[in-house]
């Protein structure tokens, strides 16, 4: 499955006793296999929204249900396990572990899940081949280009076999060529593995590829467009 149902979601930051409403009442349903872009200007609440969906931040009000489980009700330890086994993350700055090779970076997530060494190495190699850098599995992030690092990051996000992948401005640090290659790769993964992808982005190229574009402004959804 992998249905995300968000109801009446609010996030209010109490900054210096002047409340800031970052997310101000969002209702949304994202179905399994969607390829969705969350767009909006800086400060619109995209990242806060994504953080709450990813269980990294706690809503002030409202609930996020994933396959019927309200992740806001999960105790911290269970929430960590939930993230590990159900959500893949792709970050703007790749955020790979610099002392590990590409293969180790991907395998690491599976180790956290308790998979055996041979199994995780095999899956890591396969994933890196799928994302097109099978010949660079022994390189460390510092020896890879930005585009290649982000591919490793996508492979890492897929490694845990998540219900959905959250990508926060994944193309912001990439050139056009790398961006297009990465988007094609994610679309391929989306189609082949039926993995749900949710992006936050400003990037028109991402919006062009997305099949659903949700615009957020001042913490509320101002448009929700489904492409054919």
């Amino acid at each position: 499955m992998g249905v995300i149902k968000i109801s009446n979601l609010h996030k209010i930051y109490d900054e210096s006793k002047i409340p800031v409403k970052a997310v101000n009442g969002i209702d949304l349903t994202i179905k399994q296999g969607e390829f969705t872009a969350i767009v909006g200007p800086s400060g619109s609440g995209k990242t806060t929204f994504l953080n709450m969906v990813g269980g990294l931040d706690v809503p002030s009000k409202g609930k996020i249900e994933i396959d019927g489980i309200n992740i806001g009700n999960l105790p911290p330890r269970q929430l960590i396990d939930y993230r590990l086994n159900n959500i893949g993350f792709v970050f703007q700055a790749y955020n790979l572990i610099p002392v590990l090779t590409a293969q180790e970076n991907v395998a690491f997530i599976m180790q956290l899940q308790g998979k055996g060494k041979n199994e995780r190495n095999k899956i890591a190699r396969e994933l890196l081949e799928t994302v097109g850098i099978g010949d660079k599995i022994d390189r460390r992030p510092g020896d890879l280009s930005g585009g290649q690092q982000q591919r490793v990051s996508v492979a890492r996000a897929l490694a845990s076999k998540p219900k959905f992948i959250l990508a926060d401005e994944p193309t912001a640090n990439l050139d056009s060529k790398s961006t297009n290659e990465l988007l094609d790769l994610m679309l391929k993964m989306n189609k082949e593995l039926d993995t749900t992808f949710i992006f936050s982005t400003h990037d028109q190229r991402v919006m062009d590829k997305a099949r659903r574009i949700i615009t957020i402004d001042d913490g509320i959804i101002t448009s929700d467009v489904q492409k054919n």
Binding site: L84, Q113, R156
Partner: peptide
């Protein structure tokens, strides 16, 4: 990042 991806 480690905490986000599920390192307890």
């Amino acid at each position: 990042m480690l905490k986000a991806v599920g390192m307890n």
